[in-house]
Design a protein around this nucleic acid. Structure first.
Lengths: 210, 210
DNA sequence: TAGATTGTTAATCGATTAACAATC
DNA sequence: TAGATTGTTAATCGATTAACAATC
């Protein structure tokens, strides 16, 4: 798996490849050409070959790609087979939805604990995940190698929480608050992935018009 | 507000401009130059001026942009002042989270009703929004001019539901299922905006590595 | 072998950045 | 007026598409 500098555009397509390949595999499809996959996904064959060639040579002339093998390759490129530690901060409706319905292990993470300030929640479990008090967080971070924190707390707490998490060595933040927090110079190796619901709906609003 | 063909890259930045301008306005900032805004947002001054010039001339030489005015302009470009009708389909954890916590009117929509198949939910209200039975949906769509449907149901129902919605004239679908449904040729004017949680976390997974 | 399809190099297209005359 | 900053045109950079020799 060679890696030069992979462009963001390519990286964002990888999870889609993953999903399509997985669904082809489930349907029992054994092999697929770049052009067939392109038709499926609304991409050009060229683009798919170009994308994949960033990471290696996974196909065979005259044959195409073995679906299962390519799926495995892309999964590994994305590190989906790992089990890095994650915590979730803010057990409101959205936090609870993620704890109950989202499969973290599918994306290479193990959700070890969730944190909240509500005394009624602290000490309980949801879907087998312990809910701990916010005061226990720093200690938890010191004792566990937490790679990623999921931020599902009210936006006004996002900056302070993010600062603390980064100071404590968290390497990635999956941010669901509607706030783009600042990342200090010293933490510019921390990866932030934002899911801004309202930005998404506003793009839809623009496109619908009227 | 002139509009040629606006690129997707530009459109996706508009909601961010909106958020930053709104926060500047709240902080009492009256005017801002493209370079100052660029520093704020991590963009170049050129890019900001280029982006805005797609829609008109909102600045003034030697002065910059009036924050409040520009905010209003961008809001209008995004149609945030409208109140188009929306429905939500699938009142699980995520659906409930959106109904309770998400401000649709902030993005130019009014959430008129939510739909589910759970008899325990049907007939109740959440946050003032009536929860109706799935069987009532077609009738509801016939009687209301529903612009957008929010899909928060299990992925296996996404395709069937999307087909029905598009047949009934819905113009946009905000898709939270982890499934990219097909859009029939006859509906290629329907706008689909996907929020794929797992794609997002997998990008984070890739970037974190190890 | 002939047909299919890859990986890669070259060509094109589009988006970002730089430069600058216009002007507040 | 002098300084600042716009909107826009031109230059650059990067990403997508096309072409094709290599080869299964």
């Amino acid at each position: 798996m060679k890696k030069g500098k992979i462009s963001n555009a390519v990286i964002r397509r990888l999870p889609r490849y993953c999903r399509y390949l997985s669904s082809l595999h489930r349907e029992g499809v054994e092999r697929i050409s770049s052009s067939a996959l392109g038709n499926n996904m609304g991409l050009t064959a060229s683009q798919i070959r170009q994308d994949l060639s960033c990471f290696g040579e996974f196909g065979q002339q005259g044959y195409g790609y073995n679906v299962e093998k390519l799926y495995q390759e892309v999964s590994e490129i994305l590190y989906l087979h790992k089990q890095r530690e994650a915590v979730l901060i803010g057990v409101g409706n959205l936090g609870r939805a993620l704890i109950q319905n989202f499969d973290f292990s599918d994306s290479g993470f193990h959700l070890g604990a969730a944190f909240d300030i509500d005394p009624a929640l602290i000490g309980t479990e949801i879907n087998g995940i312990p809910i701990l008090g916010a005061l226990a967080l720093e200690n938890y971070l010191a004792e566990h190698d937490v790679a990623v924190a999921v931020l599902t707390l009210p936006g006004r707490y996002a900056q302070g929480m993010a600062d603390m998490l980064m100071d404590k060595g968290v390497r990635g933040i999956w941010n669901f608050t509607n706030f783009d927090f600042e990342v200090k110079e010293e933490h510019n190796d921390v990866v932030v992935e934002n899911i801004h619901f309202s930005d998404s709906l506003r793009v839809l609003s623009y496109q619908i018009g009227e």
